[in-house]
Design a protein around this nucleic acid. Structure first.
Lengths: 209, 209
DNA sequence: TGACAGAAAGAACGACCGTTCGTACTCTTC
DNA sequence: GAAGAGTACGAACGGTCGTTCTTTCTGTCA
């Protein structure tokens, strides 16, 4: 029995670099035009390469979309989830999550605002593998928020009557509303408003890190 | 000087009926595929008419999109705004607005969830006449919420320290989060959760109409 | 009733869509 | 350095996009 029983595709170092560049452009383009509005032609043009060349890395548009979701998830994890994980358990983690979210909007990580705000709404009614991938990530980060809230309740930082599901919905809502307003009106002040609203809701007094 | 100095296009009664049918289908299709994802071919097919026939009513896709936004705005006004206008001034109007919003989601007025939640996010980065039309409507209903809040503060139903802009952002956020979850997971229970959250935030006790 | 204009069909246009293919180049490995 | 596989190009495919045009039909009104 040979060691190539299941033939694995070995990628070359230059190919790996190109693939990363493609996904970087794909994530950015899809926050502007949506995951469905993302086209091979536009993507190729923005990278100054041929459409055929793209198919050396992705066998179909759906594969490209799936990889784009994963790439966006990785960026979101680095910029928003990770900072919250390394904060003090409880309310500080909730605060870090929301603040990091506003920060990643402010520094315009994605030119079209939050990738997942757009993707969840866009793919909500488009059932299939791409929707499932988006939903799985969305579910994951909502559950993370739930966990932060339960910890905060256990730590007596939040009232025992606090319903994790309700508070998570409220926080998720503030993030969505801030994103929508920021993108539509290019309004910087809504970021500060969001930070204030979150602090007030979590009972965090000014001066806390 | 003749009475036809500026030639006005007079629509026939059957044409008016068709136009309404087109817009009805266009609104529904665009909540699923987006305003950009809406195509003349799909629209014609769903109406069992020809693409050419559509151009008797709309000279371009942009005209169609603008008319679609207006048609959606009219439906939204009827189903969500009007019920709130006829409620008692103050908190009851805020409550009526949110409740009517959840109701219009629940009865699936639009198959893809809230038209404007999708349209604002989709058109946010697509500058042009269509975005302006969407933005104008969005601005209008946010300002209506502001007004409701100010009235509620004047009526001492809400604390004087309440910041209208902040509360409007919170309520807008809850609506957006409920819509997103409802569309993505087809989850009925999130509607009831949204109703509870809004009531708690507005300090409305159970039993109020 | 006849004339006119609106409504609708259907064919056709160039452009772009996702995808496939044959070919040439180049990085990696023996 | 030769072999082989990954990388990339560019042309081409059928299909759909938005749009235009010509033609036929029909509601409206003098």
């Amino acid at each position: 029995m040979t060691q190539h029983a299941t033939r694995e595709r070995r990628t070359r170092s230059d190919g790996e670099r190109t693939r990363a560049a493609i996904l970087d452009a794909a994530v950015k383009l899809s926050t502007v035009d949506g995951l469905e509005g993302l086209t091979i032609g536009n993507l190729a043009k923005s990278l100054r390469m041929s459409k055929g060349g793209l198919y050396a890395h992705f066998g179909s548009k759906e594969e490209l979309q799936l990889a784009t979701v994963d790439a966006a998830a990785a960026i979101f994890t680095t910029e928003v989830v990770s900072p919250s994980l390394s904060a003090q358990p409880g309310v500080r983690q909730l605060l870090a999550f929301c603040d990091s979210y506003f920060d990643h909007l402010e520094r315009r990580t994605f030119p079209g605002g939050c990738f997942f705000a757009g993707a969840t709404l866009e793919m909500g009614t488009h059932h299939g593998p791409v929707q499932e991938r988006v939903a799985r990530f969305h579910t994951g980060f909502i559950q993370l928020i739930h966990q932060y809230i339960r910890t905060a309740v256990d730590n007596h930082e939040l009232a025992e009557t606090e319903d994790p599901r309700a508070l998570a919905l409220e926080l998720n809502g503030v993030l969505l509303a801030v994103d929508t307003n920021f993108v539509m009106y290019d309004d910087q002040t809504v970021l500060e408003l969001g930070r204030r609203v979150v602090r007030r809701r979590l009972g965090v007094t000014e001066g806390d890190s």
